[in-house]
Structures are given as structure tokens and as C-alpha cells.
């Protein structure tokens, strides 16, 4: 039932919206992990980020893609909680309990063990539109629990214009989705974050959309 809802939601709403309302310039799509366990680490600017990443997968695979999302936000109201858990299939993360690292990632770990593909936003929040915030270490603590799961970096650009944080007006905008090579060798948290931000910076150079005048001048 839930899977049917998810497939219908993506087939009838998300995929047409992404195709016509947005329009993606996808680069290196073949690098997207085809089977789990795998983690997709992407930058975060808009609620659309998750939907766009999931829409890259064919309908029969979509139930395998699970976004890890903040429980305090997505479970805050009854409808939103139902929609997030049943239709999108998020794995809720209690951001308050960061002290007990083991407990924090239990659900994510079991999903990975089950062979799911997790979508993670290491910036932790959508932050300022179209700007990369410092990355957080949580992704390392999750990945190390499963003996170096491959982490695929993805940079998206333009969605912060289409539907930024705190705005209700959607505007059509072409978006870049640049997928990088998976990272699978990392020793510690700082090393992983350094590798990730280096990949992110490199991937950003392939973007077509210019998000500001400043960037254009440089």
C-alpha cells in the first residue's frame, strides 16, 4: 500500500513536475548507486532536493531510496508525519539526541543493512539559498557502522531559486544535478569531510546555472 502510494506520487506528480517545471541538467548519471547499501550525500537548499534525487530512480526502485530527515521538522504535524513516513518513506532522525550516537543512527543502519540507498544532507539544514554550509560529522559516524559504505557525492544547483527555504511561490528553473564518483576509503571524520567538500567544490564547476552576479564576475 505504502509502496503503491509512493509510486503513484512520483509517477503522477513528482516526475512530471521535475520534467516540465524544472528540467534537469544531469551529469554523470551512471555514477548514481544502483543498489544498496549506499549513501548519497548531497547539498541542501530546498525541499525539492530530496524529490529531485529520488526522481532520478526508476519507479520500481524508488521504494529503495530513503531520505534521512529531521524528526523535529518532518514529524511535527500529523499530516506531515504521515506524508513523510508513508509516502516519501523518510528515516526520521532525532537531532536532539546527538549525544547517544548509536541510538541516533539505529534506523538508518538497519535500512542500509536491508540494502536501501540513503539520501543524506551533510550540511544538516537547507541554510542560505544556493550556498554550501560547513559539513557535519554525522555522516561519518553512520558510514563507519557499516564498514565503509560507498558515499556518492551529488551537487544540485538551481533548486534554491525554484523553491527556496521559507517561500511558497514555486518558479520554473533549470537545475543542475552533478553526480560524482563514490568515496569508499575514509579513515576518520575530518578526512571524510575534507574529501567530500573537495568533491563538492569540483562538482560545482560543472554547473550551468549561475546563482549570483558575484560568481559570474570571478
Amino acid at each position: 500500500m505504502n509502496r503503491l502510494l509512493k509510486v503513484l506520487f512520483f509517477a503522477l506528480l513528482v516526475k512530471p513536475l521535475v520534467l516540465l517545471g524544472l528540467g534537469l541538467n544531469t551529469r554523470q548519471r551512471n555514477l548514481l548507486p544502483q543498489s544498496g547499501p549506499a549513501i548519497i550525500a548531497a547539498n541542501h537548499n530546498s525541499h525539492l532536493d530530496t524529490l529531485v534525487l529520488m526522481s532520478l530512480y526508476p519507479l520500481h526502485q524508488i521504494h529503495r531510496v530513503r531520505p534521512v530527515a529531521a524528526a523535529d521538522y518532518f514529524l511535527s504535524s500529523r499530516f506531515l508525519a504521515w506524508f513523510s513516513l508513508k509516502v516519501i518513506g523518510i528515516i526520521p532522525l532525532e537531532r536532539k539526541h546527538v549525544r547517544e550516537l548509536d541510538k541516533l543512527f539505529n534506523q538508518s543502519v538497519s535500512a542500509l543493512e536491508h540494502g536501501d540507498i540513503l539520501v543524506l544532507f551533510p550540511e544538516g539544514t537547507r541554510g542560505q539559498p544556493e550556498q554550501l554550509a560547513p559539513l557535519k560529522k554525522g555522516i561519518y559516524h553512520l558510514a563507519k557502522r557499516l564498514d565503509s559504505v560507498p558515499i556518492t557525492p551529488v551537487i544540485m544547483r538551481g533548486l534554491g531559486m525554484a523553491l527556496p527555504r521559507g517561500e511558497a511561490l514555486f518558479i520554473p528553473y533549470n537545475c543542475d544535478v552533478i553526480i560524482g564518483k563514490a568515496l569508499s576509503e575514509y579513515r576518520d571524520a575530518d578526512g571524510l569531510l575534507a574529501q567530500l567538500s573537495e568533491r563538492f567544490t569540483e562538482l560545482e564547476t560543472h554547473c550551468l546555472t549561475k546563482s549570483s552576479f558575484e560568481e559570474h564576475r570571478s
Binding site: E130, M161, P164, Y173, N174, T209, S211, S212, F213
Partner: peptide
């Protein structure tokens, strides 16, 4: 396509 490649400001949305 044109609006996406040309630099613009958040306030232009």
C-alpha cells in the same frame, strides 16, 4: 533555460 543560465538574484524570483 535563459533565466537559469543568466546570473540573477533571489529577489528576482
Amino acid at each position: 533555460e535563459f533565466l537559469s543560465i543568466v546570473p540573477s538574484r533571489q529577489t528576482d524570483r
